[in-house]
Write a protein that binds this DNA or RNA. Structure first.
Lengths: 148, 148
DNA sequence: GATCAAATGTACCTTTATGTCCATAATAGC
DNA sequence: GCTATTATGGACATAAAGGTACATTTGATC
């Protein structure tokens, strides 16, 4: 459905949305359970796409570039692994633009549904709900970080 | 969204739904523009999953195992590249079953939407509509096989 | 039963996604 | 200015997806 990379990016972004100050790559990696080295690659992409600001040195780390209300799941997914829409029939070299065969119309519609759902989900919704964000993986006691 | 393999499988199945008699692997590969060698792999999976029957020798080939009304996009996709539902939070080793954090609830809901849409689309709908199935890639004159 | 036309099965290759490692650059505190 | 701490960048390693090639098996026809 979405790539592992997009999943990791979403975890990191939700985590950042929960923080009041800058979070280090290592800190994010630990609580979101993402391989640290790989996460740093992903964070770089998020910085380049202006979803996150970074700061080096002591006290540095990553911070959301916009407020959580202004960042959607779709923004994050598209930053690291853009959703590909079907605009022309894959069977054609020289496309005819808007018209798709029935099969690709269905696939295209499904993609549009997902895009809409993702666009409507903001990071703010993902941290303010009754359920714990990220399945309570924010350090509590070692064995409490489970879904509940 | 869906893998290349699933896309190929869908093209092949739509093509089969249009045929009155058995179609050879080569024939399917040509009109659906799928690499022949790779298509044969995919056809084997469809046979194993009982969506297609095969027959060797002269006059042989592939035929749908059920009527096009009884085969959905979801059936085909799941046969070659199963859609993975999110049943437990990926952040947890020992899962807590039904409850997901807000993020994974959203992702799970999106997957469910897609599954529903795919389950409701039958092969029969993909060949009986006004538009040409498979973007008219069924051999007409060489330059006519375009979306329209 | 010989031959031809098809699918099947196996091995291998290429590309992309995922993941690791380490050297480098920037920043804050002393 | 020195040091510790952080992100950045590049090279490399591994795994999975996509793709190719070819020998083998099965079935129909003559």
């Amino acid at each position: 459905m979405i790539s592992q990379t997009a999943e990791y990016a979403l975890r990191a972004m939700v985590f950042l949305a929960m923080q009041k100050s800058a979070a280090t790559g290592q800190g994010i990696a630990e609580t979101t359970k993402v391989p640290p080295g790989y996460l740093s690659k992903i964070m770089q992409q998020l910085v380049k796409r202006k979803l996150v600001n970074s700061q080096r040195g002591i006290g540095g780390g990553f911070v959301l570039a916009r407020s959580p209300e202004e960042i959607s799941i779709l923004d994050v997914v598209n930053a690291v692994d853009p959703i590909e829409k079907i605009t022309t029939c894959p069977l054609d070299i020289q496309s005819h633009g808007l018209n798709l065969c029935p099969l690709h119309k269905r696939l295209s519609a499904a993609i549009a549904q997902v895009e809409l759902a993702f666009a409507e989900s903001k990071l703010s919704e993902l941290v303010t709900e009754s359920q714990s964000p990220l399945c309570s993986s924010v350090p509590l006691t070692p064995n409490q970080n489970v879904c509940h």
